[in-house]
Computed example of a mutant assay.
Amino acid sequence: MEGAFAIARQFAERAFHFDSQAELASGLEACALELGFSYFALLHHVDLRKHWQRMIRIDNYPAGWTERFIGSRLFLEDPVFCASLMTNIGFPWDSIGKLIRVSRTQRQILEAARREGLNCGFTVPAHIPGEAHGSCSFACASARTFSHDCMLAAQLVGSFAFQAARRICCARCPLRLQAVQLTPRQRDCVELVAQGKTDWEIAMILGLKEDSVTKVVDAARRRYDVANRTELVVAALFDGQISFNTVRHWQYQFAPCSSVNSRTSR
C-alpha cells in the first residue's frame, strides 16, 4: 500500500502527544481509515463487563456487536483474543487457524462478527509483564487481502496506540511503574516452589539450610505483599520474574498447517 509507512510514522509521532482517550480514539480512527480499515478496537483482554480504572477499552466497533460481545461474554472464547496469546506480532484474522485450533463456538463467533460488519481484520498483540494481555485490532466491513506494507504499518500503529493508551491510563490512575524485583536467590527459590518442591528439597538442590529457604521465600512473599506461596508464584509468573518454561520444561508442539486446518474444518 503506497504511503502506508508514512501514515504509520505520522501516527507514531502524534501518539506521544495524545492527552486523552477521546483524542487517541479520534487519531486512531483517522489512521485506520487511511490504512483502509473501517473499525478499530484497543482492548485489555479482561472481563469487559466490569469497569476497572486501569482497563484499556477504546473502540468504534458496531454498537450491536459490542453489546452482544460483552453481554453474552463472547470475549471468554473470542478466537482473536486466544490467537493473540500465541504470537507477539500482528496477524490477519484469516490466519487464526494456524495459531490455534478453532472450536465450533469460535467459528460461530467469527461468523457472527462478519454479519455485524467485521468481515476481516488484523490484530496486534500487546504483552506487558505485570499487566493484563491486550491487543489493537483493525477490521474491515468487506473482505480484502492485506498487503505486506499494510500489515507492517498496522503493526507499528497498533503498538504505538497501545503504548499511548497505557500512558494516558497512567495519568488518570497511576500504575505500578515496574514489577517487583526479586533477588537472584529469591528467584531461584520461587522457581523451585513453583515446581512443587518442599523447602527441604529446595535446600538440598541449592545447598542451603531448610530454615534459610523458608526465610528467603517469606522475604519474596513480603516483597509482593501476598498471603501465601500460591499467590507468590502467580505474581512472579505474571510479572515475568520467573517463566513458565523454567517452572515446567516443555515446548509447544506445532502440528503441520495442513493437519491443523483439517481438524478445524470439521
Rank of each mutant, 00 (worst) to 15 (best):
A6C: 01
A6K: 09
I7Y: 08
Q10L: 03
A12H: 07
R14D: 14
R14L: 15
F18P: 04
D19H: 11
Q21M: 14
E23I: 14
L28V: 12
L28W: 01
A30I: 07
A30R: 14
L33N: 11
F37E: 13
S38Y: 03
Y39T: 05
A41D: 07
L42I: 09
K50D: 05
H51S: 12
H51T: 11
W52C: 06
R54D: 12
R57A: 12
D59V: 08
N60D: 15
W65L: 02
W65M: 01
E67C: 08
R68Y: 03
G71V: 08
R73Y: 07
E77K: 13
V80F: 01
F81Q: 02
S84C: 00
L85I: 01
T87W: 08
T87G: 04
N88P: 00
N88W: 11
G90Y: 11
W93D: 12
W93I: 02
I96F: 09
K98F: 01
L99A: 04
R101E: 02
V102N: 01
S103C: 09
Q106C: 15
I109Q: 00
L118S: 08
L118T: 08
L118Y: 06
N119D: 07
N119A: 06
G121F: 00
F122G: 12
T123L: 03
T123W: 03
A132N: 15
A132D: 14
C136H: 06
F138I: 06
A139G: 07
A139M: 12
A139L: 10
S147R: 05
D149K: 10
C150D: 14
C150W: 04
A153G: 07
A154N: 09
Q155S: 10
F160D: 00
A161P: 15
F162R: 04
A165C: 08
I168S: 04
A171Q: 15
A171L: 13
R176H: 00
V180A: 08
L182G: 10
P184C: 00
C189K: 01
A194R: 01
Q195I: 10
G196R: 04
T198K: 09
W200N: 02
W200A: 13
W200K: 06
E201A: 14
A203F: 13
A203R: 04
M204Y: 05
L208M: 15
E210C: 15
T214F: 07
V216L: 07
V217L: 02
A220V: 02
Y224F: 09
D225L: 05
V226E: 07
A227Q: 13
N228K: 03
R229T: 10
R229M: 05
T230V: 15
F238L: 08
G240L: 02
F244M: 05
V247Q: 11
R248K: 11
W250I: 05
Q251S: 06
Q251T: 06
Y252E: 08
F254E: 13
A255L: 11
A255Y: 09
S258T: 06
S258Q: 10
S259V: 08
V260E: 10
R263G: 04
